[in-house]
Amino acid sequence: MSDQEAKPSTEDLGDKKEGEYIKLKVIGQDSSEIHFKVKMTTHLKKLKESYCQRQGVPMNSLRFLFEGQRIADNHTPKELGMEEEDVIEVYQEQTGGHSTV
């Protein structure tokens, strides 16, 4: 019986991991920090939209990076291997420009 009891508790931990929340720091170019608590399985588009709304800027005017890689709207913290207190960097999107060649 103890084996049966242990097995469901392991499964519960697996389920808990799926719905687990982590805190992420979003740091802007001006070094301002906003902290977000997100589920591991939530699409990061929600975090990006919330950040842009707080900053009063359109979402397409900023780019969000985690460990140097651009974050897509459909990425989740779990897919990117994010952990508690990880940092997302935000930069002004640069458009235009010309070749110097």
Score class of each variant (00 low, 15 high):
residue 2 S to N: 11
residue 2 S to T: 12
residue 2 S to M: 11
residue 3 D to L: 08
residue 3 D to Q: 08
residue 4 Q to R: 12
residue 4 Q to W: 07
residue 5 E to L: 10
residue 5 E to D: 13
residue 5 E to G: 15
residue 5 E to N: 09
residue 6 A to F: 12
residue 6 A to W: 13
residue 6 A to S: 11
residue 6 A to D: 13
residue 7 K to Y: 09
residue 8 P to D: 01
residue 9 S to K: 15
residue 10 T to Q: 11
residue 11 E to R: 10
residue 11 E to K: 11
residue 11 E to Y: 06
residue 11 E to S: 10
residue 11 E to F: 06
residue 12 D to E: 09
residue 12 D to A: 13
residue 13 L to W: 10
residue 15 D to E: 12
residue 15 D to L: 10
residue 15 D to I: 07
residue 15 D to A: 12
residue 15 D to Q: 07
residue 16 K to W: 06
residue 16 K to M: 12
residue 16 K to V: 10
residue 17 K to Q: 12
residue 17 K to R: 13
residue 17 K to E: 14
residue 18 E to S: 11
residue 18 E to T: 09
residue 19 G to L: 12
residue 20 E to K: 13
residue 21 Y to N: 09
residue 21 Y to D: 06
residue 21 Y to C: 13
residue 21 Y to V: 08
residue 22 I to M: 12
residue 23 K to G: 06
residue 23 K to H: 10
residue 24 L to Y: 01
residue 25 K to S: 09
residue 25 K to R: 13
residue 26 V to H: 00
residue 27 I to R: 04
residue 28 G to R: 10
residue 30 D to S: 02
residue 30 D to E: 08
residue 31 S to C: 09
residue 31 S to G: 09
residue 32 S to L: 05
residue 34 I to Q: 02
residue 35 H to N: 09
residue 35 H to I: 10
residue 36 F to K: 00
residue 38 V to G: 01
residue 40 M to L: 14
residue 40 M to R: 09
residue 41 T to Q: 15
residue 41 T to L: 05
residue 41 T to S: 12
residue 42 T to K: 07
residue 42 T to G: 06
residue 42 T to C: 08
residue 43 H to Y: 09
residue 43 H to T: 09
residue 44 L to M: 14
residue 44 L to S: 02
residue 44 L to C: 05
residue 45 K to A: 13
residue 45 K to Y: 05
residue 46 K to S: 06
residue 46 K to E: 04
residue 46 K to C: 03
residue 47 L to I: 08
residue 47 L to W: 02
residue 48 K to W: 03
residue 48 K to L: 03
residue 48 K to Q: 01
residue 49 E to V: 08
residue 49 E to N: 03
residue 49 E to I: 04
residue 49 E to T: 01
residue 50 S to Y: 04
residue 50 S to M: 13
residue 50 S to I: 15
residue 51 Y to M: 01
residue 51 Y to F: 10
residue 51 Y to W: 15
residue 51 Y to L: 01
residue 52 C to W: 04
residue 52 C to V: 05
residue 52 C to A: 01
residue 53 Q to S: 15
residue 53 Q to A: 12
residue 54 R to P: 00
residue 55 Q to I: 15
residue 55 Q to W: 08
residue 56 G to L: 06
residue 57 V to P: 01
residue 58 P to G: 09
residue 58 P to N: 01
residue 58 P to W: 00
residue 59 M to K: 14
residue 60 N to M: 04
residue 62 L to H: 10
residue 63 R to Y: 09
residue 63 R to A: 03
residue 64 F to R: 03
residue 64 F to I: 00
residue 65 L to A: 03
residue 65 L to V: 12
residue 66 F to L: 03
residue 66 F to Q: 02
residue 66 F to H: 13
residue 67 E to M: 14
residue 67 E to K: 05
residue 69 Q to S: 12
residue 69 Q to W: 07
residue 69 Q to K: 11
residue 70 R to G: 12
residue 70 R to T: 11
residue 70 R to A: 09
residue 70 R to C: 09
residue 71 I to M: 02
residue 71 I to E: 02
residue 71 I to N: 02
residue 72 A to H: 09
residue 72 A to M: 15
residue 72 A to Q: 07
residue 73 D to P: 01
residue 73 D to K: 01
residue 75 H to Q: 12
residue 75 H to A: 10
residue 76 T to H: 00
residue 77 P to N: 02
residue 77 P to W: 00
residue 78 K to G: 15
residue 79 E to F: 02
residue 79 E to C: 04
residue 79 E to V: 15
residue 80 L to S: 02
residue 81 G to K: 06
residue 81 G to A: 13
residue 82 M to K: 02
residue 83 E to M: 14
residue 83 E to Y: 12
residue 83 E to G: 13
residue 83 E to W: 07
residue 84 E to A: 09
residue 86 D to G: 12
residue 88 I to M: 06
residue 89 E to Q: 06
residue 89 E to P: 00
residue 90 V to Q: 03
residue 90 V to H: 05
residue 92 Q to F: 03
residue 92 Q to M: 14
residue 92 Q to L: 07
residue 93 E to M: 10
residue 94 Q to M: 10
residue 94 Q to K: 07
residue 95 T to Y: 00
residue 95 T to R: 14
residue 95 T to K: 03
residue 96 G to A: 02
residue 97 G to Q: 00
residue 97 G to L: 07
